[in-house]
Design a protein around this nucleic acid. Structure first.
Length: 136
RNA sequence: AGCAAUUCUUGUUCUAUCGCUGGUAGAUUUUUUUCUACGAGAGGAAAGUCCGGGCAACAUAGAGCACCAUACUACCUAACGGGUAGGCAAUAUUUAUAUAUUGACAGCAAGUGCCACAGAAAAUUACCGCCUUAGCAAUAGGGUAAGGGUGAAAAUGUGAGGUAAGAGCUCACACAAUGGCUUAGUGAUAGGUUGUUGGGGUAAACCUUAUGGGUUGAAAGACCAAAUAUAUCAGCAUAGAGUGGCUCGCUCGUUAUGGCUGAGGGGUAGGUCGUUGGAGGCUUAUUGUGAAGUAAGUCCUAGAUUAAUGAUAGAAGCCUUUUUUAAGGUACAGAACCCGGCUUAUAGAGAAUUGCUUUGU
């Protein structure tokens, strides 16, 4: 149920480059999100990239802490987006990065992560609808 | 008992739920994978990347220059710019012995340079002064480093002789530097004796002397190897048919290339090794002032690669405050090839030594 294997992480260097060049982005404080979607794929998957940049967190301990918080909250709340991708047959890659000097509490992280996931789902749904209308 | 300094040791624990990365065993699957069980999973500094070494690749006939680093002695160590023990110097305490701390601690008596302001002059000095020669005098020339004041620093200090006036110019004593001999010491060095000298500072100024250094770091390096394109080779097909260049264009001519299948080298994505058992830790005995050495016993599975070692909830322990029940706090900080050091950060707890204060006997 709540597993989080390496397959679900984004490891390929070219895909990461592609994500940061072409991806759409929005900000829900204290996180900034970039994501891309590919439509009409046979075996759809969701890839995630978790970031805590050195610019905001100087010490390695704090960076690890922030990453772990994001990971846990994503792990427990990822079910909806996976189901969405399966039903709509689209590939989604997401990058979530912390944009704050302070490490937030776990409750705040969890709420914002849920918000982020909902927003991505809505946006992609709109995109799909537009796509189908254009085809018609 | 309290306070301070130094050194050393340590660096909170448990439960539940949901997870992550390796290992072993079993099941599943052609393999990859997936599942289950068991057990493992950050530090004293993992940090800074400042030294030294292992390991790897490349380079390498020999010598010199340049560049960089180091610079009292002996020892320890695989090695070091590290450590231990000592010498010397400076500083602090002290009547003193002594104790503690610090130390780019070779050379300015090889050469070159620099020394703000003040001062006559910052190193072949001469403003006032003193003496002397010329001159009626003003002044000019010469001698001098005693006296004056400046400065962080002014030609070693005191006394006597000496002189036109003076001067280490000479002598005595003292001070400093340095060479020889001798005593003690493995040695740095110290004591004694004797000779020479009196040279301002600065080498964290260039420089000189001695010693050492090949360069790059695990993103080193070795191996396996999809897809796509393809050097080369083989077979089949096509013959002067097609395409490109030469031509403004056309024709002729000339030149280059070749379609399919298979083998195949290099090599990208990706993967495997390197990669964690070692100059290893602990205990005891023993040698040594000590750093350390020797012997015996015993113990030891972190190994990621967009990067695991966690999150949440609860409880306990410790510290502080206080209304005695609550509140707050619980450091510094996260492995990345591996070792030995150094430096820096660090809540709290414990041990030892030294010093001071107070109380009791």
């Amino acid at each position: 149920m709540y597993k989080f294997h390496k397959k679900e992480k984004l490891c390929n260097r070219d895909e990461i480059k592609n994500l940061f060049v072409k991806g759409q982005s929005f900000l829900i404080y204290p996180f900034s999100v970039r994501y891309t979607t590919k439509l009409n794929i046979n075996s759809p998957k969701v890839h995630v990239l978790l970031l805590s940049p050195k610019r905001y967190q100087k010490l390695a301990v704090n960076r690890n802490r922030a990453k772990r918080l994001i990971r846990e909250s994503y792990r427990l709340n990822k079910e909806s987006i996976i189901q969405f991708s399966k039903t709509q047959a689209c590939d989604i890659t997401i990058a979530i990065s912390l944009v704050s000097n302070k490490i937030p509490l776990y409750i705040i992280v969890e709420q914002t992560i849920i918000n982020i996931i909902d927003r991505i789902i809505q946006n992609t749904q709109n995109q799909i609808e537009n796509h189908t209308q254009n085809n018609k």
